[in-house]
Design a protein around this nucleic acid. Structure first.
Length: 528
RNA sequence: GCGGGAGUAACUCAGUUGGUAGAGUGUCAGCUUCCCAAGCUGAAUGUCGCGGGUUCGAUUCCCGUCUCCCGCUCCA
C-alpha cells in the first residue's frame, strides 16, 4: 500500500478538508484565487491549536524566550539591509523561441559568437520556430527538431530549455509584495514620468529605470519573513526586559512571497504563516546552540503527535548555505509527495544584527558586564550577538498534522465499520469533545446540553450534536479528529453517568458526569 | 512561466455523435432507532468553472480566461 496509494492521499485530504470545513479555496465562488486558501471552522481551530502549542513550548515554557508581534509592513530599508531587496530579485529572462522563462544566473553559459543550436521538442515546433525566426529576419537551417546556425549573443548564456540565444532583456522579478503606504497615488507619478520620458525620446531601459525610481519612493513591502522585526527590535526587547544573552525573541504570523509556483495544496502559497525564533548567543557559540535547538525543535514536532518515522533532519550542503550561515538543518516531513521542509534551523552568525547596524547607523551590541573583554583583558564586554534561528512553517505544520493523522480503517467481515479517522493529537483537535444524546427525546438533549455548558465554562471546546443516528455522529467526529465523545443515554437519567467513547479504538467506558470535564482536561494536558 | 491532464449537485463521478442532465454518498423533514455512516417515507440542490464566438439551439464545437493536479522551473 506504500507508494501506490500515496498520490491520491493528497486528493483525499483536500477533499476531506473541504467537506468537513478545514480548508477552502480563497474566493471560490468567483473562480478561486491562485495559491490562496481560507481556513474554515475546523481548520482555523487546528491552525490556532498548532500555533498555541508552538508558543507554549517556545515562550511560555521557558525563561529565556520572549514574544513579539510586529507589523507586517516595515520600512524599505529593513529589506535593503536584510538583503531581501537584492537577493529576492532574481534576474529573469524570457526565451523568444520557446517561451521559457528562466533565471539568467542559472542558465547555461555560452560565449558571444559560439554556435548555439536550438533544439525543440519535435519537428513541428522546430518548423514553427523556424518560420517565426525567418519572419524576424533570422535564417536558420532545420535538421529534424534542431535549428542550426544561431550564435550566442552578448548576454553570455542561452535558454536552458531549447538553447536559443534569442532572449528578452533581463528583468528583475521581486518575490516581495510591493504596495504603497499613505494616500499617495504612484500611478499619477508614473503617468507624469512616462509622458515626460516619451517627450524626451527615452529608450525602454531608461524609462524603466525612471518608473522604478518613482515607485521606489513610495514603496513598502509586505514582509517575506517574520524574522527581520526581531533583529530590528533587538535592542528594544533586550533593554525593556533587561534580558541577558543567551535569550530569544519569538514571533508567529503571516508572511508573503510572490512565489513563481504554488504547489501541494497549502504547502507553498503566497500568503503563509510562520513561527520563528531568533536566539541570541555569545560569538562562537552558534554551533553549540544549533545542536541544542535541533534537539528541542524535533522534540516539539514529536510532542504534537507527528510520527517519528515521518520526521528527519536534512543538513544543508555547503553550496546551499547562505553566505553568512555556518550551518543549517531542515526538519523534513515525509509528505505524500516525498520528504519536504517543515522548519529550517540555521546558525546565522552575526550577519543580521551587523547588517541592520550598518544600515541604520545604530549600534546593535550587547554589553555583558560579567564577561572579560578579549582585547583589553578588563571585565565587561561589548559584542554583537550571534543568532541561531529555528524558523517553522505553521501552515506546513497544519498540512503535516493532517497527513500524519489521516487514516482509513477497512470494514469488518460483515462489511461494516469502515471509517476515515483523523488521529490528531488531542491538543490539536479542533473539537475536544462531542456531547451526544443517544436519541433526541426523553430529556436526553437537555442533559447533554448541560454537560456541554460545563465544558464551555472550563474553556474546553465542546460540541453538542444530535443530528442523525449515533453511529453517524461518531463517524463525523472521527473525520474531524474529535478525540472523545460523551453519550447521554437512559442510564444517564438514572445514575448521572455517561459513556466516553475514544476516537482511536472506539472503546467505551462509563464515567460520572461530574468527572467528565476533569477526565477530558487531564487527557489534554498529558504530555506524550 | 512552459509542457501534459482536468473542471458537471456539498463530495466522488456518469452522461449528452449539439436539443438546457443523472447515480451513489451526503444534506433536510417525518417515522423508527438504547451505541458505531442501520431502516422506511418524503424533499431540496446544478446558470455542466467563467466570458465570448459559431448555431434556430451550446454543458457538448471554436477562442479566450480562471482554477486545480502532475512534470519542469522556482522556492526563507
Amino acid at each position: 500500500m506504500e507508494d501506490s496509494q500515496k498520490p491520491d492521499l493528497m486528493d483525499k485530504i483536500v477533499s476531506l478538508c473541504k467537506r468537513r470545513g478545514f480548508v477552502f479555496q480563497s474566493s471560490e465562488i468567483y473562480g478561486g484565487l491562485r495559491s490562496a486558501y481560507d481556513y474554515g471552522p475546523m481548520g482555523s481551530e487546528l491552525k490556532r491549536n498548532l500555533m498555541s502549542e508552538w508558543w507554549r513550548f517556545m515562550v511560555h515554557s521557558r525563561e529565556d524566550v520572549v514574544g513579539i508581534d510586529a507589523s507586517i509592513i516595515m520600512r524599505p530599508e529593513v529589506w535593503q539591509s536584510s538583503g531581501h531587496l537584492a537577493n529576492f530579485s532574481d534576474p529573469l529572462v524570457d526565451c523568444k523561441v520557446c517561451g521559457e522563462r528562466f533565471r539568467a544566473d542559472k542558465a547555461p553559459r555560452k560565449a558571444e559568437g559560439e554556435d548555439a543550436p536550438i533544439t525543440l521538442g519535435d519537428k513541428g515546433r522546430a518548423k514553427a520556430a523556424q518560420e517565426k525566426l525567418t519572419e524576424a529576419g533570422v535564417k536558420l537551417q532545420r535538421d529534424g527538431s534542431t535549428l542550426n546556425g544561431a550564435k550566442a549573443g552578448a548576454a553570455g548564456y542561452v535558454c536552458p530549455n531549447c538553447g536559443s540565444p534569442f532572449l528578452s532583456d533581463e528583468r528583475r522579478f521581486n518575490l516581495m509584495f510591493r504596495t504603497s503606504l499613505g494616500p499617495v497615488d504612484p500611478i499619477g507619478d508614473v503617468v507624469d514620468i512616462v509622458r515626460k520620458a516619451m517627450a524626451e525620446g527615452a529608450d525602454d531601459k531608461a524609462l524603466r529605470a525612471r518608473v522604478e525610481g518613482a515607485l521606489a519612493a513610495s514603496s513598502v513591502y509586505l514582509r517575506p519573513e517574520t524574522a527581520q522585526a526581531m533583529f530590528v527590535q533587538f535592542l528594544n526587547v533586550q533593554q525593556s526586559l533587561s534580558l541577558k544573552v543567551p535569550f530569544g525573541i519569538a514571533q508567529m504570523g503571516k508572511s508573503f512571497r510572490n512565489e513563481v509556483t504554488a504547489e501541494h495544496f497549502i504547502f507553498r502559497s503566497c500568503e503563509f504563516e510562520q513561527m520563528e525564533c531568533e536566539y541570541f548567543v555569545p560569538p562562537g557559540e552558534g554551533p553549540k546552540y544549533l545542536d541544542y535547538w535541533m534537539n528541542e525543535r524535533m522534540k516539539w514536532w514529536k510532542s504534537i503527535g507527528i510520527k517519528v518515522d515521518n520526521l528527519r533532519f536534512r543538513k544543508h550542503d555547503d553550496d546551499e548555505l547562505a553566505h553568512y550561515s555556518d550551518g543549517c538543518y531542515d526538519v523534513e516531513y515525509k509528505f505524500p509527495w516525498g520528504w519536504d521542509e517543515l522548519e529550517g534551523i540555521a546558525s546565522r552568525t552575526d550577519f543580521d544584527l551587523k547588517a541592520h547596524a550598518a544600515g541604520s547607523g545604530k549600534k546593535l551590541t550587547y554589553f555583558d558586564p560579567e564577561a572579560v573583554d578579549p582585547e583589553t583583558g578588563k571585565p565587561g564586554r561589548h559584542y554583537v550577538p550571534h543568532v541561531v534561528e529555528p524558523a517553522a512553517g505553521a501552515t506546513r505544520g497544519v498540512l503535516a498534522a493532517l497527513c500524519d493523522a489521516y487514516d482509513e480503517e477497512p470494514a469488518d467481515a460483515e462489511g461494516k465499520g469502515a471509517r476515515t479517522v483523523l488521529r490528531l493529537h488531542p491538543r490539536l483537535s479542533p473539537i475536544k469533545v462531542g456531547v451526544l444524546p443517544l436519541v433526541k427525546k426523553d430529556g436526553m438533549p437537555e442533559v447533554a446540553r448541560k454537560v456541554v455548558e460545563a465544558f464551555f465554562g472550563a474553556g474546553v471546546n465542546a460540541k453538542y450534536d444530535e443530528q442523525h443516528a449515533i453511529g453517524r455522529r461518531y463517524a463525523r467526529h472521527d473525520e474531524v479528529g474529535t478525540p472523545y465523545c460523551l453519550t447521554v443515554d437512559t442510564q444517564t437519567l438514572q445514575d448521572e453517568t455517561v459513556t466516553i467513547r475514544y476516537r482511536d479504538d472506539r472503546r467505551q467506558e462509563r464515567i460520572k458526569i461530574a468527572d467528565a470535564v476533569d477526565t477530558v482536561r487531564k487527557a489534554l494536558t498529558e504530555t506524550t
